[in-house]
Structure formats: structure tokens, C-alpha cells
């Protein structure tokens, strides 16, 4: 839906490269994929949505708060998922508080199929 001629900024949202962030989270071994979940979490950009991420500026200033919604791999403890996600987010969004929401667990049958 992006129309030609309208100036669109890059993917920097409050100083955070959201595409890089999404790639970093998706690369975590404990993460099956990012998901928008039932609440439709995402960064709403012109013409597209980066699903499963939310970057919200903090009222008092400072680094923006990052929310990550993921589907975990089967058999991985949730704590470990959160730990991996936080480790992945840290270099892309330094100093940002990270809220991790595990929305679902990948079905074992899906993996075997």
C-alpha cells in the first residue's frame, strides 16, 4: 500500500532498527518465530507491520521499551527463551528494557511433519 512519492523514513524506530531487531530475535535457537499474537503486537510502519515487536517510548525519556512476542521451540524452558531473547536484543537496542511474551509453543507434530 506504500504509495510512490511519499517520503518514508527508514526502519529506525526511536533509534532502534526494527528489522535488525526482528532478525536478531528470530535467530535465537529457542525461538521458533516472532508472532503478532491475538493482540496484533507489532511495529506499525507505512505499508507493513513488523510482527511480534513493539517499541514504545518511555514517558520519562531514555531508551525506548521493547516488547518481543515469540513462539518458543518445544521443550525449551521459558526462562531460557527469555534469556536468549534479552541477549539478542541487547546489542541492537542498548539500554532498553525488554519485555518478553511467550505467546505459544511450537507444536512437536509440526516439527516432525
Amino acid at each position: 500500500m506504500t504509495s510512490p512519492g511519499t517520503v518514508v523514513d527508514g526502519v529506525l524506530v526511536d533509534g532502534i532498527d526494527v528489522d535488525l531487531l526482528a532478525a536478531a530475535v528470530a535467530a535465537c535457537p529457542a525461538v521458533a518465530r516472532l508472532t503478532a499474537g491475538p493482540a496484533g503486537a507489532g511495529v506499525y510502519l507505512p505499508g507493513r507491520r513488523v510482527a511480534g515487536l513493539a517499541v514504545r517510548p518511555q514517558p520519562g525519556g531514555g531508551p525506548a521499551r521493547v516488547a518481543v512476542h515469540v513462539v518458543a521451540r518445544a521443550g525449551v524452558p521459558v526462562q531460557e527463551v527469555a534469556g536468549q531473547v534479552r541477549t539478542a536484543v541487547a546489542p541492537v537496542a542498548p539500554g532498553s528494557p525488554v519485555d518478553v511474551a511467550v505467546e505459544d509453543v511450537e507444536d512437536v507434530e509440526d516439527v516432525q511433519a
Binding site: T6, V7, D9, V13, G40, A54
Partner: peptide, 18 residues
């Protein structure tokens, strides 16, 4: 199905940048 607060943030950002 869209979180309205996040959508508003997105609109505001794009309108201001443009």
C-alpha cells in the same frame, strides 16, 4: 485487531517524519 495505542504511535511517527 490492531492495538490502537501502537497504531497511533506509528501514525504519529510517519506523519511527523513526512
Amino acid at each position: 485487531g490492531v492495538p490502537i495505542a501502537d497504531l497511533a504511535t506509528g501514525i504519529r511517527r510517519n506523519v511527523i517524519t513526512s
